[in-house]
Amino acid sequence: MKTYFFLGKGGVGKTTASAAWSVGLARSGMKTLVASIDPAHNLGDAFAADLGDRITHVADNLDAVEVNIDDMIRAYLDELSVKMKHTYSYMSAMNIDGYFDILKDSPGIEEYATMEAIKKFVALAQYDAVVFDTPPTGMTIRVLAMPRVSLLWTEQLVKMRKRILATRGMVENVQGRLEAQVDGETVVLSSDEKEDPIMQELVAYREELKTLKDMFSSDQSYVSIVTMAEDLALLETKRIIESLGKFRIRVHAIYLNKFFAMANPPDEIKGKMEEQERVVARMKAEIPGIAVKDIPLLRNSPRGIEALFTVYSKYLV
């Protein structure tokens, strides 16, 4: 499966780019899903269709979905809360509900949920390609970095857990199976990695993280930056490439959106156009190996499959 991420700040045209790209892929015969994981959705606008949490068929070979991250967090926490209330019912002293309210705002929960969403779509075997319309840059970088960072922690925790289980094993060797009273029930504490639920979760999570990490940095994953031909954008683009590079994620292409092209520009625009030329020249010089393409400022925002396909075939490839 191939995955495509379009990164950029709000309002630069990520949605248009990713929608157009997905149409292009679908037309080339790939079974494609385009998913918006940006809390501020406008994928529906691009397709002139009503999209939502359910995967919707929008064209031949093409499905689309808008994920509500907040709902996802809420649903996930609710589910967790039920599990936890059952497990921790004896800990009445600790206000469990209060604790979950804290969790909702806990740093990283949004990134976590976004990553979970990506994981979910990537796991769908029926698609040949998934295109993501991502949230603004900073957030997306954190999400892309997450598998690698989480992996470090998870590996440490796995190591610690191994040690605990080894110690348990020593006691078990002499005393037989260990038991504990939890909430008045007797629980067997296993020293077997396969029977320890925490170890199982950690190992499973580690594998998932590894898969994601490998996927993000594989050559099946295409990350493109959508920005505008401005001096500031140049710096920002370089920074994004650099920080993604740290996580072994390669940027595939840079799209300069809303590019002015005019035969006889009035003086007011001339400065702007010179800036454009300068930025394009510097980008090509300073960021070698990455294709830089421009998408002109269009008269109307492209709406619907055909318009998107036009954008795709004229500017993106």
């Binding site: 936890m84 004896y90 800990m91 990553m115 989480s150 925790l157 504490l189 950690l202």
Partner: peptide, 19 residues
């Protein structure tokens, strides 16, 4: 604290450790 993801995964099984 470790990344929220790890935490959320193991939290339901941590009751003994917490006790």
């Amino acid at each position: 604290s470790p990344p929220t993801g790890v935490l959320l995964r193991i939290l339901p099984h941590m009751s003994r450790e917490i006790s």
